[in-house]
C-alpha cells in the first residue's frame, strides 16, 4: 500500500523532471553567447571572440551540437535517464557525472552540518521563545530569526569573515581541507535556517500548547516532563520536518554563493562557473540533478511525516 503511494509519487517526479529538462534546455539554447566565445573572452582575455569556422564546426561535432535541437534534447534525456551527462565544455577530459559525484558530497556535507547546527540552536530557542512569549527573551529570539531569514547568506558570510576572521582571528577566512575551514561557511549557511526553525518551532509549540488535549494532560496530573516534553513537543516537532526537509534540499542547492565566497570545491561552485562560461551540458546536468534532489527530499519528508503522524500513516498512504 505504502509502496503504491511511493510508486505514484516517483512517477510524478519523473514527469516533473521531464518538464524541468525541457524548460532548462529551451532556456539554455535561447540564452545568448556560446562557450567557445565566452571562454576566449574570460580565460584567454582575447577581445576578438570570433572563432575560425572549421574549429567551431569540429567542436560542435564533438559535442553533437550539429544535430537538430530536438535530437540533442532526446540524446540528453536518454543519457540523463542513465545518469550520464557526458563531458562538459570546460572539463572535456572528465564527465559531468564524475564531477557531480566528487563535488556534491562536499555541498551536501555543508548543508547537513548547517541544518544540524540550525536544529540544535533553533529548536531550544523556539521552545524558550514559546514559553517566555511576549517577554524580552521572546522579542530577541524573534529579532534574531527575522535578521536570519531576511539577510542573504553571502551578506552574513561577509559579516562573519570580518568579525571572526579579520577582527578576532578565530578562524581562517579562506582555505579548505581542515575542520576549522568549515566554521565560517557552515555558520553563514545556518543563520537562515536557525531563523526559520526558531520561528516555526515557537509557533508550532504555542499552537500545540493551546490544544485541548494539553489541558487534559495537565488535568491528568502531568508535570512539565509529561505534558510539555511528551505530549506537546512531539506533536509540535512533527510539522517541523516539513520545514527542515526542504531547507536541507534548498541549502544543498543554495550553497552557490557561499562556496564561491570561500572557494570551496563543492557542486555549487561548479554550477556557478558553468553558468558564467555557458557550459551548457554542465548547466543541464546539474540543474536536473538538483531538481531530482529537491523532489526526492520532499518525497522522503512526506514519508517520514507519515511515519510520525498516525493519522496520515493510516489514511492517505493506504488510500494511495
Amino acid at each position: 500500500m505504502v509502496l503504491k503511494y511511493i510508486v505514484k509519487r516517483v512517477a510524478f517526479i519523473i514527469v516533473a523532471l521531464f518538464f524541468v529538462s525541457l524548460i532548462t534546455f529551451i532556456l539554455v539554447k535561447s540564452a545568448p553567447g556560446s562557450y567557445i566565445e565566452t571562454e576566449r573572452l574570460l580565460s584567454q582575455n582575447i577581445t576578438d571572440i570570433t572563432v575560425p569556422p572549421e574549429v567551431k564546426a569540429a567542436w560542435e561535432k564533438a559535442y553533437q551540437l550539429d544535430k537538430p535541437e530536438w535530437q540533442q534534447f532526446l540524446i540528453f534525456l536518454s543519457n540523463a535517464a542513465r545518469f550520464e551527462f557526458g563531458p562538459s565544455f570546460q572539463y572535456p577530459s572528465t564527465t559531468i557525472e564524475k564531477i557531480i559525484m566528487r563535488t556534491f558530497p562536499i555541498s551536501f556535507r555543508l548543508a547537513v552540518m548547517a541544518i544540524g547546527l540550525a536544529l540544535v540552536i533553533g529548536i531550544p530557542l523556539g521552545i524558550i521563545a514559546a514559553f517566555k512569549r511576549n517577554t524580552v527573551i521572546d522579542r530577541i529570539a524573534t529579532l534574531v530569526s527575522m535578521i536570519g531569514t531576511s539577510l542573504p547568506n553571502y551578506v552574513i558570510a561577509v559579516f562573519l569573515i570580518y568579525i571572526l576572521a579579520l577582527k578576532l582571528h578565530l578562524v581562517p577566512s579562506i582555505g579548505w581541507g581542515e575542520p576549522k575551514n568549515y566554521v565560517l561557511p557552515v555558520l553563514s549557511l545556518a543563520i537562515a535556517p536557525i531563523g526559520s526553525i526558531t520561528r516555526y518551532m515557537r509557533a508550532s509549540l504555542i499552537e500545540t500548547l493551546n490544544k485541548e488535549y494539553i489541558r487534559v494532560a495537565w488535568a491528568k496530573g502531568g508535570g512539565f516532563r509529561q505534558v510539555v516534553l511528551k505530549h506537546a513537543l512531539r506533536n509540535s516537532l512533527i510539522p517541523l520536518i516539513t520545514v527542515v526537509g526542504p531547507q536541507l534540499a534548498y541549502l544543498t542547492v543554495g550553497t552557490v554563493f557561499v562556496e564561491n565566497l570561500f572557494n570551496i570545491p563543492g557542486l555549487g561552485k561548479f554550477y556557478a562557473s558553468a553558468a558564467i562560461y555557458r557550459d551548457y551540458p554542465m548547466v543541464m546536468g546539474t540543474t536536473v540533478f538538483f531538481a531530482t534532489i529537491v523532489m526526492f527530499t520532499n518525497l522522503i519528508v512526506d514519508i517520514i511525516y507519515g511515519i510520525l503522524d498516525p493519522r496520515i500513516r493510516k489514511h492517505s498512504m493506504l488510500e494511495g
Partner: peptide
C-alpha cells in the same frame, strides 16, 4: 475531569 469536546481532548499521535 472530563471535558466538553472528546474530538480534541485526546492526543492524536
Amino acid at each position: 475531569m472530563i471535558f466538553q469536546d472528546p474530538m480534541s481532548s485526546l492526543n492524536p499521535t
